[in-house]
């Protein structure tokens, strides 16, 4: 449950990357996504991933355990993509496999960085203030997100409760899938009930009053936010340039 635990979203400790406004981080993610999705070589993702790795300390992810906890599913996914392509595609070589694996890491890591550095409340603030997202939907989604850590805690109790009732899967994969399905359904029931109660509590505090909502924290854009996006663009340009110079450049034009 490592990555899901990392979504056990709460306030994040003050990190240098956390001082970048969430919408600037989202903008940067957009740039990276665009560049990586359109290139199918090994050099471009390698440069991008290297740059992203340089950001890890700024995101407070310097301890190996912390890093592993947040990235293992990502690394697993990347290596499986790489391996599957190497093993199964007739024309794909090892280099292509590595390139595809790196591309997956390069695309997914920014999300991990955003979660590690950004309190979801600040994200909602930024989205509603800068991108004019509906406050009711943004804060409604925020309330739902807050239930995730509660459900993670409940997962273990529900699993143990099933064993106490005489239900366990053993090694049978079908029984395992059924057991997991049952647990997930129990959690969904709990989440929907909690969500309904939460909605009541929010209404009782005037969430549905129709008065335009103010924001106590605000969300300011600084020069460093522009610099961050510009830096991201620069890294991407450098990545593509080095790819072209080494002759690896293999663009896929989408659309």
């Amino acid at each position: 449950m490592g990555a899901v635990t990392s979504l056990a979203l709460g306030p994040t400790a003050g990190t240098r990357l956390g001082r970048i406004n969430p919408v600037a981080q989202l903008g940067a993610i957009g740039v990276v996504t665009l560049v990586l999705l359109t290139s199918l070589d090994v050099v471009t993702p390698a440069v991008v991933v290297a740059a992203e790795l340089c950001l890890l300390p700024a995101a407070g992810l310097s301890s190996p355990w912390d890093l592993w906890r947040r990235t293992w599913p990502l690394l697993l996914g990347a290596s499986s993509v790489g391996l599957v392509n190497v093993l199964l595609s007739a024309d794909a070589g090892v280099i292509t496999g590595v390139g595809l694996g790196l591309r997956v890491v390069g695309l997914a890591l920014p999300g991990v960085l955003l979660v590690a550095t950004t309190d979801p409340v600040r994200l909602a603030d930024a989205l509603t203030l800068h991108w004019r997202m509906s406050t009711r939907f943004a804060f409604g989604a925020l309330a739902a997100l807050r239930l995730v850590p509660l459900l993670i805690g409940e997962f273990e109790s529900v699993r143990l409760a099933r064993r106490a009732r005489g239900v366990e899967a053993g090694r049978n994969p079908v029984a395992r899938a059924r057991l997991l399905g049952g647990i997930v359904f129990a959690l969904l029931v709990s989440a929907v009930r909690r969500g309904s109660r939460l909605a009541t509590a929010m209404d009782a505090r005037g969430f549905d009053s129709g008065i335009p909502r103010s924001n106590a924290r605000g969300s300011r854009l600084h020069r460093r936010d522009a610099a961050f996006v510009a830096g991201t663009v620069a890294v991407c340009v450098a990545a593509v340039t080095s790819s072209v110079l080494t002759g690896a450049w293999h663009p896929v034009f989408v659309g």
Binding site: R146, F207, S209, I211
Partner: peptide
């Protein structure tokens, strides 16, 4: 609703 104590108290006032 919110992740920090102060923000949660502020929630009703923002509304």
């Amino acid at each position: 609703v919110m992740t920090r104590a102060g923000d949660d108290v502020a929630f009703g006032l923002e509304n």
